[in-house]
């Protein structure tokens, strides 16, 4: 029974990991851009939601608004700075985005202090439900359902719309996309903002579960890379499968051997790198 409980927990955690990682993966697929600032978007999403709710804004408004602000800031960063360095080697991407991530983290400490804080779930979801013998927080169930609906919507966006087709086409040849009269720079900005917004949303959603603290972005970045490497760069399905896998393993390990949870995940990543360098569902 404890395993069922941890399984449900793991699914919730895994869906958040998916939201966090899918943007990183798509951005890499389209732009071949290594973004170490991705965790900073998660951090910002969490803190903005925290701040808005602290100031008395309705929880739901905060949940919508915070990721939108993150997406807008990401679009601005992409236009002003990042698009100028796509053509440089990956080491430059890492240097610039690590710098950005540190700046955001320091800014968070300056604005909100080094301690962090808690966010209460909304009134309507502050209760519990019974899962067999276990009591389970309603908010966590909400996160599972909400992220699953979002994952479906995202799938439709990528597979069923023209924008999604353009993004997949762009990951093969940006020149050919331009030759069809499509402004690839705009597509890049849109995709970057979408990926960052999703990471921000993951942060906002996670805030009532795990609170906020200035170093949550670093942890999130590590998880996001593990998920992308296990699932395969540029793959939506890969991010979903790997996100769930990592979430569930981590959750079940907290019962079996809490200290080993993280070890297990990085071990899994090492194993994938050694046996299938493209990830479980990556493409050539």
């Amino acid at each position: 029974m404890i395993y069922l409980f941890q399984l449900v927990n793991g699914i919730g955690l895994g869906m958040l990991y998916f939201l966090l990682a899918v943007g990183l993966s798509i951005i890499f697929g389209l732009l071949h851009f290594v973004n170490f600032a991705h965790g900073a978007f998660y951090l910002l999403g969490a803190y903005l939601a925290y701040d808005m709710i602290e100031r008395g804004l309705n929880f739901w408004a905060g949940l919508v608004l915070a990721p939108l602000v993150v997406a807008a800031l990401a679009a601005l960063t992409e236009i002003v700075l990042l698009r100028r360095i796509y053509h440089l080697p990956h080491t430059f991407h890492i240097l610039v985005t690590v710098g950005l991530a540190l700046m955001v983290q320091e800014l968070v400490i300056i604005l909100w202090g080094p301690v962090g804080g808690n966010v209460s779930p909304p009134e309507a979801l502050s209760g519990v439900v019974m899962l067999g013998d276990f009591i389970y927080p309603q908010y966590r169930l909400f996160v599972i359902v909400f992220t699953m609906v979002l994952a479906l919507g995202l799938w439709w966006l990528l597979e069923g719309t023209r924008l999604g087709a353009v993004v997949r086409a762009g990951s093969e040849s940006t020149d050919m996309v331009s030759l069809l009269g499509i402004d690839i720079l705009k597509v890049n900005t849109a995709v970057f903002a979408l990926g960052a917004g999703l990471a921000g949303l993951a942060g906002s959603l996670a805030a009532p579960i795990r609170g906020v603290e200035p170093f949550m972005g670093v942890e999130a970045l590590g998880i996001a890379f593990v998920v992308v490497v296990i699932g395969g760069m540029g793959s939506y399905t890969g991010a979903l499968v790997a996100g769930l896998l990592v979430g569930i393993v981590q959750s079940i390990m907290t019962t079996l051997w809490p200290e080993g949870a993280r070890l297990m995940i990085y071990l899994g990543m090492g194993l994938v790198i050694l046996t299938m360098p493209r990830g479980l569902l990556g493409r050539a």
Binding site: A165, R168, A169, S171, E172, L180, G181, I182, R283
Partner: peptide, 13 residues
């Protein structure tokens, strides 16, 4: 675009 179907290749254009 190999990742797109024939029809998607046409639709994006």
């Amino acid at each position: 675009f190999g990742l797109l179907s024939v029809e998607e290749n046409l639709r994006i254009a």
